[in-house]
Structures are given as C-alpha cells and as structure tokens.
C-alpha cells in the first residue's frame, strides 16, 4: 500500500491512516509534525480501489468502527480520533 514517510525522531513504528478531507486527520498529522516523530501515513480516500480495500481492512483490524484518523504505534497501541493528550503521552 502506498505510504508517505515523514522523517523524524524514532519512537517506534508509527502509522497514520487518514483521509485527505478530514479536519481531525489534519490536526493529528500536524501534531505528529510538531512532535517531530518519524511516521508513515496514507490518505485512504486517495488510494486505488484495490489498495483502498486493503487499507480499510487494516484499519478495521485495529479499529473495528473503521473510522479516521486511526493511529497505530508498533502494531499494538491504537489511538482513534484526534486525542491530543493521549497522542502526546504515547509519543513523548
């Protein structure tokens, strides 16, 4: 699946599943930028149909409601939505 990589401080494997049109996804992405951590992200709404289906299944695996933004840290910790305090705490 097509992922964009952002360089920064290594705090584990951080993946952000986002929508390009969503306000809370943008805020989450800005927060990751502010924290200066290394992460990968994908705008699921911009993927090809086949890749989109894979991405949706991946998101649903971590977050059964399939909502965005879904932030996955080291394949285990999952933060759904722009929960600023929780994200700061997890990545400090």
């Amino acid at each position: 699946m097509q992922m964009e990589h952002v360089k920064g401080r290594r705090r584990g494997e951080i993946i952000l599943y986002a929508l390009s049109t969503c306000g809370w996804c943008a805020k989450t992405k800005n927060l990751l930028g502010e924290l200066g951590v290394e992460y990968s992200y994908t705008y699921v709404d911009r993927l090809s149909p086949a890749e989109m289906e894979d991405a949706i299944r991946e998101v649903e695996k971590y977050n059964p409601s399939g909502s965005f933004p879904t932030l996955v840290i080291d394949g285990s910790r999952v933060i759904v939505g722009f929960r600023e305090a929780e994200i700061r705490e997890a990545l400090k």
Binding site: L19, S20, G23
Partner: peptide, 18 residues
C-alpha cells in the same frame, strides 16, 4: 472537503468519513 467529495462522488459526503 465537502466540495471535493461532491466532485469526486457526486454527493456531498461527510469530509471525515470514507
């Protein structure tokens, strides 16, 4: 986002949902 969705899908889908 609403305008983009309208152009993309033909209806003004919620910008924060797929």
């Amino acid at each position: 986002g609403i305008c983009i969705n309208e152009q993309r899908y033909g209806y003004a889908a919620c910008p924060c949902r797929l």
